[in-house]
Design a protein around this nucleic acid. Structure first.
Length: 263
DNA sequence: ATTGTGGCCTGCCCGC
DNA sequence: TGCGGGCAGGCCACAA
């Protein structure tokens, strides 16, 4: 599913649209609109606008608009099965838990550029969506660049499960379920630990592993390419010490961890 | 305010 | 072979 590494791939792909002008806007299903954006407004703002930039905050892709749409922004969320296409190129090859097929009906939103190119979002399950002027302030610091101090602030003073806090996009933006399991596994921290219970040494370890994991997976281009992920399955064993992994629901999400070395 | 839960949405996989 | 149920989880509305 698209987490920070996938969305960063999408952002890089979206950079190809910078400087191009929007012609036709296609919204196949108005359920794909989020944040109160109306089809008419979307059409009006996008038509004739130029793409001025492609940014990413956590899992949110933001296209800054220029010219006719100056000052406005287009936000794209990918949910867990969303894919970005620019011209004839796809952002990532494979998505875990998502079909690799590209049914025309799954193309939920697209803009045609006046040069004949295309930016399209394919999303079988409609869990993603597009909106005008998304609330960027509602997101915490981006997980790829968060400082140790900011990470500590995101966790401190809370008794909720550490993993739940890592998944809270308003505290830290970009970590999804697979990444959370991978990072906690690498940091040797139990997912159900109270978020505020980490010692300074554990906080440093978590920050280092978070950073390391993101650098590595950004390079590999997918959140499913971690070390733990292939073992998140019944009977799966810890690749570090061979112990049987445990499965439970933490923070409302399926969670796999190694009770032997994650404390 | 914070935290937890259920619903959305549908392709896919398993067991009968 | 077909079918039904369960599962996947990002995000949001809502409840406690």
């Amino acid at each position: 599913m698209p987490e920070l590494p996938e969305v960063e791939s999408y952002r890089r792909l979206a950079e190809r649209t910078v400087g191009r002008r929007v012609g036709e806007v296609q919204l196949r299903d108005r359920r794909y609109l989020r944040g109160g954006t109306e089809p008419d407004e979307l059409q009006q703002v996008l038509h004739g606008a130029q793409i001025a930039g492609a940014r990413r905050i956590g899992k949110l892709l933001v296209l800054d608009l220029g010219d006719a749409g100056a000052g406005r922004r287009l936000g794209v969320r990918f949910g867990m099965t969303g894919r970005l296409q620019v011209d004839d190129q796809l952002g990532v090859d494979r998505l875990l838990h998502a079909s690799d097929r590209l049914e025309p009906a799954w193309q939920r939103f697209a803009v045609r550029f006046t040069d004949g190119g295309l930016l399209a979002v394919h999303d079988p399950r409609l869990l993603g969506g597009v909106s005008l002027d998304p609330d960027e302030a509602a997101l915490g610091p981006d997980a790829a660049t968060v400082t140790p101090a900011a990470l500590a602030r995101a966790l401190q003073g809370s008794t909720t499960a550490l993993k739940a806090r890592l998944l809270d996009q308003s505290r830290l933006a970009g970590v999804g379920n697979l990444l959370a399991d991978e990072i906690l596994w690498r940091a040797s921290l139990a997912p159900a630990r109270p978020a505020g219970s980490l010692s300074p040494a554990e906080l440093r370890r978590l920050h280092r592993r978070l950073h390391q994991t993101l650098v590595e997976l950004l390079e590999r281009g997918g959140s499913h390419l971690g070390e733990l992920v292939p073992h998140r399955t019944p009977g799966g064993r810890c690749p570090r010490d061979g112990g049987e992994l445990r499965r439970a629901t933490v923070g409302g999400r399926t969670t796999w961890w190694c009770p032997t070395h994650q404390r």
